[in-house]
Write a protein that binds this DNA or RNA. Structure first.
Length: 976
DNA sequence: TTAGGGTTAG
C-alpha cells in the first residue's frame, strides 16, 4: 500500500476508536455547526490546540483536534499547515501523520510545506523508509531533501545521506549551504573530520560558499574530539576568510575547553574576547555546567546569579545543569526541589531534566519516588532518547532487575536506536554484575562487530566482572587487549585489578601493578589507598599497610568514610581497640555511613559487648541511618552466641517489619544459632520459611541443625532434615556428608552411617580422615571394636592418613573394653607414625590403666601427662583417686585431691563419693563428716552406694536398715 | 518548513 494511504487508514481507525469510546459525549457530535460560523470555530479550535501543545498538554491537544474533526470543521490550508508545524515542533510528532491524513481528506491534496513537515516528523520518529517514500513519491524541493539528509545523518547513516546529493542533482533540485552544513554535521558526529573538510571544499567548487554555520559545525567537531589546537587553528582560518567568529563559535570553544578540563583556558578566552562579545544564556549555561561537573556548586550558583542580574533568563538547560550538579553532589532533595521550582517558573522539564532525576533516584535506591516520576513522564508524554533509555538500562541492572533491563536493551533496538558505547558499556557492566559473563562477552564482541569503540570504562567493567568471579587470568588478558587497542587503563582499571590480585593472595602481582600505575603518571587516590591498606593487612603486611596510609595522609590525600571504616576494622583486629574506637569522634565530619556503623557494631560484638553494640545500633537509627541486612545479621549473630535467642528472634522480626527482607545470610545465621542453643523446633520452622523464600542453607547451617538433632537424640529427624536441606539447594559435598555421618555415628547409628558412606562413595566423593574418624568413633562407641578396626584398615588401604583423633577413638574403645595390652601396642604404632599423645590420649591411658588397677602405669602416664602440660579431666582424677581409695591409700588420694585443685579443677559429686566411701571403710568419722558437709555446701548429694558405705561402717549393729533410711531421707536419695 | 553552540547515561 502507498504510504500516504497507509497513514490515512491508520488515522481514520484511530479517530473511530476514540470517538466510539467516548459514548457519553457522542450526542454533542450530532449537532453540526452552521456553515456561517464554521470558519470562526475552526480558528478557535486551531488556537486552542496550539495553546495545549505549547504547554505540553498533549492529550488535550489530541482530543481537541479529534473533536474539531468530529464536528466536521475544516480549517484553511494555512491553518492546517500551521497545525502540522506545531504538532511537529512541540514534540507530539507521532500525531503528524494523522493530522496530515485529515488534511488530505479535506483538501484532496497538499502543498510542499505540509509534505516537508511530514518528512521531518517521519525522520524524527526514525521511520526513514517512510520519509524516503514521501520524498520520492511526489514533488520535492531542497527543503525536502535537506530534511531527509538530516534524518539519515541523525541516525548515523551519513554515507546514505551523502548519496542523496546525486539524486538531488538528477531530479534538478539545487542544493544549498544548508545541504552542505547538514552533511558536515553528520560527518563530524561520526568523527569523520577529514571527510567533512573535503566535503566543504567540494561545495565551494560547486559554487556554494562556506558560511559561519559550516565553520561552527567543523569547530564543534574538533572540540568534541578534544582537538582544541585544531579548533583554535580553524578560528584563525575563518578570520582569514573574513568570517568573524560569533557567539556560537565562542560558546563551542568554551565548551570544548571545559570538556578537556582546561577550565582556565575557557575563562581566559572569555576575558580576552570581552570586547565585542556578549555572553548569552548558552554561554552562562556552558560555564555553569562546567562548574557543576567540577562539583564547584558555589561558583555555579554565583554565575547563575550574575546571569539573572544581567537580565539573561536561564532556561530548562541551565536548570538541568544545576539540578545535575546538586544530584551528583549527593544533594538529591535540593536537586528535586529545584526541579519543582523550575516548573513554577513556567519552565517545563524536558527529557534531560527527567533523566537526571531518574538516574539519581536509581543510584540512591529510591524505587517509590522513581515510579512517581516515571509515571509523571509518561503522562506528560516526554519522549525518551537513547541517553534516557541507557539510564533506565543501567538503573534497572543496578537495582537487580536483570530481566527488565534486558527488555530495555531489546526495546532500544526495536525503536531503531543505534546503541552506542555508553549503552553497551552499561549492558556489559550489568551483565557482569548479574554474573552473566558469557552475556557480557557476547555484548563485547557485538560492539566489535558493529564497530562501536570500546572505552576504558567498557574494558574496566568486564575486568571487574572477571575479578569478582575469581577469573584473574581473563582479567589480565583484557588488560593486555585494551592496551593493544590503545585504550589505556585508568585508575579504576588499576584499582579493580589490584584488588583482584590482593584478594587472591597475590601480593607481588598487586604491588607490581601499583608500581606500573605510578610509572604511568597516575597518582593514587582514596580508592587505591583503600585497596592497598586492606590488601596489605589481609595478606599479613599490617606494618606496610599502616605506612601507606600514613604516607598518603601526610601527602594531603583526603581520606573518606570508607578509608576510615577499613582503618577501624584494621586497628580493631590488630588489638588496638582504643585507637579504633577513637575514630568515631574523628568521623563526625565525614558523615559515617551504614557500613562504618556495621564495622563499629561488629567491633563491640567481637569484644562480647552486645549491650554496647545495641546502643550504637540505636544511635545510628536516631541519626536517620537505616540499618541494613548486615547490621541486623551482626546483632542476630552476637545474640545467638550469647544464647539470647528471644532477642535474636525479635531483631529478625523487627527487620522484616521495617520492610527489610531477610536474606540468605540472615536466615542461615538465625537457623544456626537457634539450633546450636537448643531451640531446634523454632530453627526447623525458620528453615521451612527459608525454603518458601527460596534460600539455600549453608553447609555450616546443615551441620548445626544435624548436631542439634543429635544432641536432642532426635535421630528420626536427621535424615529427613538432611534431605530437606539438599532439596533446598544445598550441594551434598564431602563436608556435608561428613557432618551427616558424624552425627549418625555419635548417636550409635553406625549402620545408617555406613549406608550414607556408601552413597557418598557412589557419587564419586572419597572419604577423608574426618569421614573415617566419624565411622571409627561410631563403631567404638557402640562397642563394635572389630568393625572399628576393619574401618581403620580400610582407611590405611585407601591411603587416608589417620590422625590423633583416629587413634584416640580406637584407644578409647580398647580401654573401655579393658583391653589394655592392645592399647599399649596401638600406642606404639601411633608413636611410630610420628603422632604424639594429646590430652585426650593421656586421659584414656591414665584412666584405662587406673580402672584395671595398674597403679604403676596409670601414675607413670599421669606424670608424663602433667609434664607435657596437659591437665587431666576430673574423670581421670576420679579414676586415680578411686584406685587409691579402694585399697585404703587415703594419703595418696588426698594428695591427688590437692593437686587437682591446684590445677584449677574442682572435685565433683563422684570425687566426694569416692573419698567418703574410702574414709568410711577406714571408719574415719571426722573426715566423713567434714566431706559430707563440704559436699552439701556445694549442693552435691551422696550416691546410694556412698550412703551404704557410711551405714556399713558407722551404724550400730542391727540398726543398719534404719540408719540407711535416715541418711537417704536426709540427702533426699532414693532408697535402693 | 531544512543547518552550528549549553544540560542527562557507562
Amino acid at each position: 500500500m502507498n504510504p500516504l494511504k497507509r497513514i490515512k487508514t491508520l488515522a481514520i481507525s484511530n479517530c473511530k476508536s476514540l470517538l466510539c469510546s467516548s459514548s457519553s459525549s457522542s450526542q454533542h457530535f450530532q449537532n453540526p455547526i452552521s456553515p456561517s460560523k464554521s470558519h470562526l470555530y475552526s480558528s478557535f479550535f486551531c488556537t486552542l490546540i496550539q495553546t495545549f501543545l505549547s504547554c505540553y498538554r498533549f492529550t488535550q491537544a489530541r482530543n481537541s483536534f479529534l473533536f474539531m474533526r468530529s464536528l466536521g470543521l475544516n480549517p484553511t490550508v494555512h491553518q492546517w499547515n500551521h497545525l502540522l508545524f506545531r504538532f511537529n515542533a512541540s514534540g507530539l510528532v507521532s500525531e503528524v501523520p494523522n493530522v496530515y491524513s485529515e488534511l488530505i481528506k479535506c483538501h484532496q491534496s497538499s502543498n510542499l510545506f505540509a509534505r516537508n513537515v511530514l518528512i521531518h516528523a517521519f525522520c524524527k520518529m526514525r521511520m526513514l523508509e517512510m520519509a524516503l517514500e514521501v520524498v520520492r513519491d511526489g514533488e520535492a524541493d531542497v527543503v525536502s531533501y535537506n530534511t531527509l539528509i538530516w534524518g539519515f545523518c541523525d541516525n548515523g547513516m551519513v554515507t546514505s545521506a551523502v548519496g542523496f546529493l546525486s539524486e538531488m542533482f538528477k531530479r534538478g533540485v539545487g542544493m544549498n549551504t544548508i545541504s552542505c552544513n547538514t552533511l558536515l554535521k553528520g560527518l563530524c558526529d561520526e568523527g569523520m573530520l577529514d571527510e567533512s573538510e573535503s566535503l566543504m571544499n567540494m561545495f565551494v567548487c560547486w559554487g556554494i560558499g562556506r558560511d559561519i554555520v559550516g565553520f561552527n559545525t567543523l569547530l564543534s567537531g574538533h572540540c568534541k574530539l578534544g582537538a582544541m589546537d585544531e579548533a583554535m587553528g580553524l578560528v584563525e582560518s575563518m578570520k582569514g576568510e573574513g568570517i568573524s567568529p560569533d557567539v556560537v563559535s565562542y560558546n563551542t570553544l568554551f565548551h570544548g575547553f571545559c570538556r578537556v578540563g582546561e577550565f582556565d583556558k575557557a575563562k581566559g578566552l572569555m576575558d580576552v574576547e570581552k570586547d565585542g562579545f556578549e555572553p548569552n544564556a548558552i554561554t552562562y549555561t556552558t560555564f555553569i555546567g562546567g562548574y557543576c561537573n567540577r562539583k564547584q556548586l558555589d561558583k555555579a550558583y554565583l554565575l547563575y546569579e550574575e546571569m539573572v542580574t544581567s537580565g539573561i533568563l536561564p532556561d530548562v538547560v541551565t536548570y538541568s545543569a544545576l539540578i545535575n550538579g546538586l544530584c551528583k553532589s549527593g544533594k538529591l532533595l535540593k536537586g528535586y526541589s529545584l526541579f519543582r521550582q523550575m516548573e513554577k517558573m513556567d519552565i517545563t522539564a524536558n527529557h534531560v531534566s527527567y533523566s537526571t532525576i531518574i538516574d539519581t533516584l536509581f543510584k540512591s535506591g529510591k524505587p517509590r519516588e522513581l515510579s512517581i516520576i516515571q509515571g509523571e513522564m509518561v503522562v506528560r508524554g516526554i519522549i525518551l532518547d537513547l541517553v534516557s533509555h541507557t539510564i533506565f538500562l543501567d538503573g534497572l541492572f543496578k537495582a537487580g532487575m536483570v530481566d527488565e533491563a534486558e527488555k530495555v536493551f531489546k526495546h532500544i533496538s526495536s525503536l531503531q536506536f543505534k546503541p552506542n558505547h555508553f549503552t553497551y558499556t552499561a549492558l556489559i557492566d550489568g551483565r557482569c554484575k548479574a554474573e552473566d559473563l558469557k552475556g557480557a562477552e557476547l555484548a563485547l564482541s557485538e560492539m566489535q562487530n558493529r564497530s562501536i569503540g570500546r572505552t576504558v570504562v567498557t574494558y574496566s567493567s568486564i575486568i571487574s566482572g572477571y575479578v569478582r568471579n575469581g577469573m584473574l587470568d581473563k582479567a589480565v588478558d583484557i588488560m593486555k587487549k585494551m592496551k593493544d587497542e590503545h585504550v589505556f587503563p585508568n585508575i579504576v582499571t588499576y584499582c579493580t585489578l589490584m584488588d583482584g590480585f590482593f584478594k587472591m593472595g597475590k601480593l607481588e602481582e598487586a604491588l607490581d601493578l601499583y608500581e606500573e600505575m605510578l610509572k604511568e603518571g597516575i597518582a593514587a587516590n582514596k580508592f587505591i589507598v583503600d585497596v592497598l591498606y586492606n590488601g596489605l593487612r589481609k595478606n599479613g603486611s599490617m606494618k606496610k599497610a599502616e605506612t601507606i596510609l600514613r604516607y598518603m595522609e601526610e601527602k594531603g590525600l583526603l581520606l573518606d568514610c570508607v578509608n576510615y571504616t577499613s582503618l577501624m576494622d584494621g586497628l580493631f583486629k590488630e588489638g588496638k581497640i582504643e585507637d579504633a574506637f577513637k575514630l568515631e569522634s574523628l568521623m563526625e565530619n565525614l558523615a559515617p555511613d551504614v557500613i562504618f556503623y556495621n564495622v563499629f557494631i561488629n567491633c563491640y560484638c567481637l569484644l562480647g559487648k552486645s549491650d554496647k553494640a545495641k546502643l550504637i545500633f540505636y544511635a545510628m537509627k536516631n541519626m536517620g541511618l537505616s540499618p541494613d541486612n548486615a547490621t541486623y545479621n551482626i546483632l542476630i549473630s552476637v545474640h545467638c552466641k550469647e544464647k539470647k535467642l528471644d532477642e535474636a528472634l525479635e531483631l529478625f522480626h523487627e527487620m522484616s517489619s521495617t520492610g527489610l527482607m531477610p536474606n540468605a545470610i540472615n536466615y542461615n545465621t538465625l537457623v544456626g544459632g537457634l539450633s546450636q542453643h537448643g531451640n531446634l523446633l523454632k530453627a526447623v520452622d525458620l528453615l521451612n520459611e527459608m525454603a518458601v523464600a527460596g534460600f539455600c542453607p549453608s553447609p555450616s547451617t546443615h551441620r548445626k541443625v544435624l548436631l542439634a538433632c543429635s544432641n536432642l537424640k532426635r535421630a528420626d529427624s536427621i535424615l529427613q532434615l538432611h534431605e530437606q536441606m539438599v532439596q533446598m539447594g544445598l550441594r551434598p559435598d564431602r563436608a556435608v556428608y561428613n557432618a551427616l555421618i558424624h552425627v549418625l555415628c555419635t548417636l550409635g547409628m553406625t549402620q545408617k552411617a555406613t549406608v550414607v558412606f556408601k552413597e557418598m562413595l557412589g557419587k564419586g566423593i572419597a572419604g577423608d580422615t574426618m569421614t573415617f574418624n566419624a565411622l571409627i568413633l561410631g563403631h567404638c562407641r557402640s562397642g563394635h571394636l572389630d568393625k572399628a578396626f576393619d574401618t581403620y584398615s580400610q582407611m590405611l588401604l585407601v591411603g587416608v592418613t589417620p590422625n590423633i583423633a583416629t587413634y584416640n577413638s580406637l584407644l578409647g574403645g580398647l580401654s573401655a573394653a579393658g583391653r589394655m595390652e592392645e592399647v599399649d601396642r596401638l600406642l606404639h604404632e601411633m608413636q611410630n607414625k610420628g603422632l604424639a599423645p594429646d590430652g585426650i590420649t593421656y586421659n584414656i591411658l591414665v584412666s584405662g590403666h587406673g580402672k584395671i588397677s595398674d597403679k604403676k602405669k596409670s601414675v607413670r602416664f599421669y606424670h608424663e601427662m602433667v609434664r607435657n602440660g596437659f591437665v587431666p579431666t576430673i574423670g581421670t582424677y576420679n579414676v586415680l583417686i578411686s584406685d587409691f581409695a579402694n585399697v585404703g591409700m587415703m594419703t595418696q588420694a588426698k594428695e591427688l585431691l590437692n593437686e587437682l585443685q591446684k590445677r584449677g579443677l574442682s572435685p565433683n559429686s563422684s570425687t566426694y563419693d569416692i573419698l567418703i566411701s574410702g574414709w568410711s571403710r577406714l571408719s574415719n568419722g571426722i573426715e566423713v563428716q567434714r566431706l559430707l558437709k563440704e559436699m552439701d555446701e556445694k549442693g552435691f548429694v551422696p550416691a546410694v552406694s556412698t550412703c551404704r558405705s557410711i551405714t556399713r561402717s558407722f551404724a550400730r549393729p542391727g540398726k543398719k536398715k534404719q540408719a540407711q533410711k535416715l541418711l537417704s531421707k536426709m540427702y533426699n536419695v532414693k532408697d535402693g
